[in-house]
Design a binder for these strands. Structure first.
Length: 420
RNA sequence: GUGAGUGUAGCCGAGUGGUUUAAGGCGCCAGGUUGUGGCCCUGGAGAUCGAGGGUUCGAAUCCCUCCACUCACCCCA
């Protein structure tokens, strides 16, 4: 029994999982680059203020989920609970406002939230995110949604849906909030205890309660899209126009609100068919006030992030086949008298670009072949006295047992010519 | 943070107080004559029974505490 275990809510990604992760990362990076986004990596921890200022003091993330610690110099730091704030900090710090705008950036990063683990929810998980900074054109809101959507499509995920809403801006949201408060105040008696207690602090939250009674009340609640100021209304209409232009299917969900305070105007989520506790596979929106919170000049931005673990589990649940590996996997077997030649040949194959391992540990030939089989090798090379004499190692096809002698000098080329 | 369920070797899993020095299967290792895998056969290694305390003559089996896992709530990716 191991005395140490991975920390609660963390997971080792073992070799059998890696093909999924590689697939997801590769597709994600390919899409981002195709949309003109360039990669950025930021530290896994930041001064805590970076997150507290932007995500919002009253959010669950800041209130109870951040990994806070003082470093040895006494500075209050936090493991990153999300990616956007760090990217914006880097944008400001490196004067990216002097680059041609918008600046398109994407990242692949672990994020940390101290939560109670459950299906699809970990304390360390990984996100792919993309941000378009420094420009408020609604074409970018649509671009981000489209980018996210195409990413999921490229993975072969089925049954996903896009939910879109607009939350307005600092100018028009207060009035909407008041309208909500007035409405909910009159119907609070019908709602669940959670909603009643949340009513004062964050009335927007009552909209996405899953309690049946609350859903009924929420459906008739005032809609943010009916309370947008002129600019926000035009912006949202324009976003929708682009979505239509690109033939994206989406739902206008007036009850979509997000758990981070920095969002303005457009918000969206991508949801898998199952719904339930992990009902969001990715989401994002516009955050035109965020840069100011970080001490920068007013700088608009829009972006999204998606959870890689949830993508991988959806891929596995939907039984999506991964692209097949390319070349053969070769296992070099040998009798003692051919040991040196076997290891010389092993190096030659590897340097020539063939995936190859040699038997180790002084096993019998029978045992070596058992190993080759158990490890799923596609070819075994057998070297004994006979092969030494003829200069032609035996190549055994592990799928059917057929063998042929190939001159040593042609071996690398021969193996590379096989499909697997 | 709340609630429910679970915790026996790498994995699955019997065993619910006394020959248990804890079954069985998978996997792992080695053999089954001379240089060959996948089936089969034989043997072997591998468990302080999640941890710590307690009850008892005696505990994997009962009690307490803690830890972890799973699921749900909350929230989100």
């Amino acid at each position: 029994m191991a005395t140490f275990k991975a920390p609660r809510g963390t997971a080792d990604a073992l070799p059998p999982d890696q093909p999924y992760w590689e697939f997801v990362r590769r597709q994600g990076e390919a899409i981002c680059r195709r949309y003109g986004y360039r990669r950025i990596d930021t530290p896994v921890f930041e001064e805590a203020g970076v997150f507290i200022r932007t995500i919002g003091q009253d959010t669950d993330i800041v209130e109870k989920e951040m990994y806070l610690f003082k470093d040895r110099g006494g500075k209050e730091m936090s493991l990153k609970p999300e990616g956007t704030a760090s990217v914006c900090r880097a944008y400001l710090e490196h004067g990216m406002s002097s680059l041609p705008q918008p600046v398109r950036l994407y990242y692949l990063s672990p994020v940390f939230r101290y939560e109670r683990p459950q299906a699809g929810r970990l304390r360390q998980h990984h996100q792919l995110g993309a941000e378009a900074l420094g420009e408020l054109d609604p074409a970018l809101d649509a671009e981000i949604i489209d980018l996210a959507w195409r990413f999921y499509l490229s993975l072969g995920l089925q049954g996903l849906s896009i939910q879109v809403n607009s939350l307005g801006c600092l100018k028009c949201r207060p009035a909407y909030r008041q309208a909500l408060v007035a409405y909910f105040a009159s119907r609070l008696g019908e709602m669940c205890p959670d909603c009643r207690s949340r009513f004062d602090r964050n009335p927007l939250r009552l909209l996405d309660c899953k309690n049946a009674a609350c859903i009924a009340v929420g459906d008739e609640a005032p809609r943010s899209t009916d309370h947008l100021c002129l600019e926000c209304g035009q912006h949202f209409a324009s976003v929708v126009r682009y979505l239509n232009l690109w033939e994206l299917t989406y739902n206008l969900d007036h009850r979509l609100v997000r758990g981070l305070d920095y969002y303005t105007r457009t918000v969206f989520e991508i949801q898998p068919p199952e719904g339930g506790s992990q009902s969001t596979i990715g989401g994002g929106g516009r955050y035109d006030d965020l840069m100011e919170e970080l001490g920068g000049r007013p700088t608009p931005g829009v972006g999204f992030a998606t959870g890689l673990e949830r993508i991988v589990s959806n891929l596995q649940r939907q039984g999506i086949a991964l692209p097949a590996a390319l070349g053969p996997r070769v296992y070099v077997c040998y009798l003692e008298e051919a040991r040196d030649e076997a290891f010389r040949l092993l190096a030659e194959l590897r340097h020539g670009g063939v995936e190859a391992v040699a038997a180790v540990g002084g096993r019998s030939l029978k045992s070596q072949l058992r190993q080759a089989d158990a490890q799923g090798m596609s070819r075994a090379i057998i070297l004994g006295g006979d092969e030494l004499k003829s200069g032609c190692p035996m190549v055994r096809d592990m799928s059917n047992g057929q063998q042929q002698s190939i001159p040593t000098g042609q071996l690398t080329a021969f193996l590379k010519g096989l499909s697997g």
